[in-house]
Nucleic acid binder design. Structure first.
Lengths: 180, 180
DNA sequence: TCTACCATGTAATCTGTTACATGATTGC
DNA sequence: GCAATCATGTAACAGATTACATGGTAGA
């Protein structure tokens, strides 16, 4: 189970609650693993039962209670066992936007341009969030720093590509008329 | 169902059999969608029942029979309906290599370097396959050409990053000694 | 007022993955 | 002789997604 190990990894750095784990993965490591709440909360519950983590509830005034999770020695042992084992599976990727994009020759050009504009906004927002949080994870750890940099690189690749795509798609009809 | 639409999209270009669809997606569009055989064959069967595709079996000498699928008008209508609808879901990404990488500060450095070397081979093989097949899909379709270019860009980003990562991880111990 | 964000969870459903089964060919 | 590639499929299991339920705060 990948979610379990992602959580155990994060808990090496600091205690966290479910909501924060999800957002943290999304904002900082969305280019290596994506998760949703439906996975996080049941996973934490199971891990608690297995003794991989401990939990203590922190009641807040004027806000819902947080359940702070900490990794246990048992959790650390299991994590290291997974880290050193390496029956590497393949990457899984499903990008509904890019899938639609691939076949937009059969659809409406303006719709394609609108989707691209929307996607540019998504990646620009993401870039800001990643840049903002990157600094805090860069202190003295090559691996996390490198992963952060890959995230930024990935983001920039997408933005450059999307902007170029918009220009080329817009220009497409015009050149065809000229050429023919 | 994403697989269904990916298949319908590909069948717009030419008739294909299951095995080829899988390899085609993997080699050309692995950066937008990944699939496995366990999805492809049942999906094709369902789509045949729904009348979205037709099938005719081509017996080959000295080789197992191929089941060639073609898209039907009904399939095209359903595909366009999906293409124009846009309740865009988020990208799904799970990269077991990058997940391990992120937390390799808690593992063995040499193991990390070995995994990186292995990953470089994977991406180099992929780059060759993509470069080889890219030309055939570039004829006159902006969208597919752009997606191809993104694939190459993605590949190059990963290779550059992996190579830099190897250098920086290897250098890490040494610089720390110097600095302290 | 309405949206966005914080915060937790469950259950049904939908998908995906793995392992198995079969069998031929080509290149090393 | 062995590994890889071609070619199809199924069934059991594991995992993910959605929709629902609840409720508070902050800012536009």
């Amino acid at each position: 189970m990948g979610v379990k190990n992602a959580i155990l990894g994060l808990l090496h750095y600091e205690d966290m609650h479910g909501y924060r784990i999800k957002n943290h993965l999304e904002r900082n490591f969305g280019h290596m693993w994506t998760v949703n709440f439906g996975q996080i909360y049941p996973a934490l519950k199971t891990m608690l039962d297995e003794g991989l983590v401990t939990m203590n509830e922190i009641g807040q005034e004027n806000a819902p209670a947080r359940k702070l999770y900490s990794i246990t020695p048992k959790g650390k042992v299991e994590f290291i066992r997974w880290l050193e084992s390496a029956p590497e599976k393949n990457m899984v990727l499903r990008d509904p936007f890019l899938l639609r994009f691939t076949f937009f020759a059969f659809g409406d050009k303006q719709h394609a341009l609108d989707l691209i504009a929307g996607q540019i906004k998504v990646y620009e927002k993401q870039r800001e969030q990643r840049a903002g949080n990157a600094a805090r994870w860069e202190r003295g750890n090559v691996y996390v720093r490198l992963i952060s940099e890959l995230g930024v690189g990935f983001n920039e690749l997408m933005l450059d590509w999307l902007k170029r795509a918009a220009v080329e798609i817009e220009a497409e009809g015009k050149t065809k008329v000229k050429a023919s």
